[in-house]
Design a protein around this nucleic acid. Sequence first.
DNA 1: TTTGTTGCAAAACGTTTGCAGCCTC
DNA 2: GAGGCTGCAAACGTTTTGCAACAAA
Lengths: 164, 164
Amino acid sequence: MKEDFSLDVIFEQFTQYLEKNKLRKTPERFAVIKKVFQTEGFFEIEQLYNALKTDYRVSLATVYNTIEHMIQANLVIKHQFPGNSSKYEKHFNKQNHYYLICTKCGSIKEFSDLKIKNLIKMKSFTTFEPGYHSLNLFGLCSKCNPKSKKKINSINAETKKTTK
Amino acid sequence: MKEDFSLDVIFEQFTQYLEKNKLRKTPERFAVIKKVFQTEGFFEIEQLYNALKTDYRVSLATVYNTIEHMIQANLVIKHQFPGNSSKYEKHFNKQNHYYLICTKCGSIKEFSDLKIKNLIKMKSFTTFEPGYHSLNLFGLCSKCNPKSKKKINSINAETKKTTK
DNA sequence: TTTGTTGCAAAACGTTTGCAGCCTC
DNA sequence: GAGGCTGCAAACGTTTTGCAACAAA
């Protein structure tokens, strides 16, 4: 799930959000954003906080606060998968999110599918304005599936191939 | 999202699960199940616990414990929508779950779409065995959408119509 | 100067755990 | 009878909150 972005553009987008909402441009906020966009894949708050602490003085409360703003500004997505703590993910512009979640071991694997994506995007509603969507397929991963000694009759095995 | 079920069948399915796993058939467990299947829509543990307490002596721990077994037995689904506490839903046999979630007010509305459902069900994976899926569309509900004084150009407004 | 934002620590909250006694099997 | 299950209360881990000091506007 590669994305093109430069920190400048991100900062710009966030600055606009801050100004629009009459919020202050504090160094802490930009430090958090920078770290988030340097992080690959999911991250948890505690993780991010620890990473930040090493070269910057921030409090947990500020990290939570800033992430919340980033969500509002459409720069971060919050996932609440099975497990104790929420997972977050950077989210440059609108994107969609497809996951295979193992109901036994909890492992999460991303996949993508253009046909599904387009079909969902086509759909419109009378009173709801869709932004992004996320699709979770719950099931058993290869490790947890008893009858999986390599499944052969896959019609279209396109995990991690269809992207972009 | 109406479902046909009788408590007997549910009890039967759960009993099978218990026996298969060498677990005991305690009255508490059946009291929890009964209450769950008498509940419409989502519920939270605290809610369920309070409802049960009025006419039965159960502990919170037992409620959590039993719900966990019901999930394993495929009788309950756990949702972790934005918000503090998990939401649960009875789940008789395999079903899928489609929601419109307002990113502003957090309201959740169910919808369904046969085309999407079928397309997703068609998909197969080399190393993953899908069970059920859930699709979350995040966006703005009518109340929170500034430019929604009744949207007219909806191509196919089929919320709550496609459900079988 | 004003007032939003910060760090800190305490509190809150949902959920999990330990344990003695109970009850299914 | 043995061992899984219960209720209870304490513990846990994440997230939120209150507040005085600080700093962006």
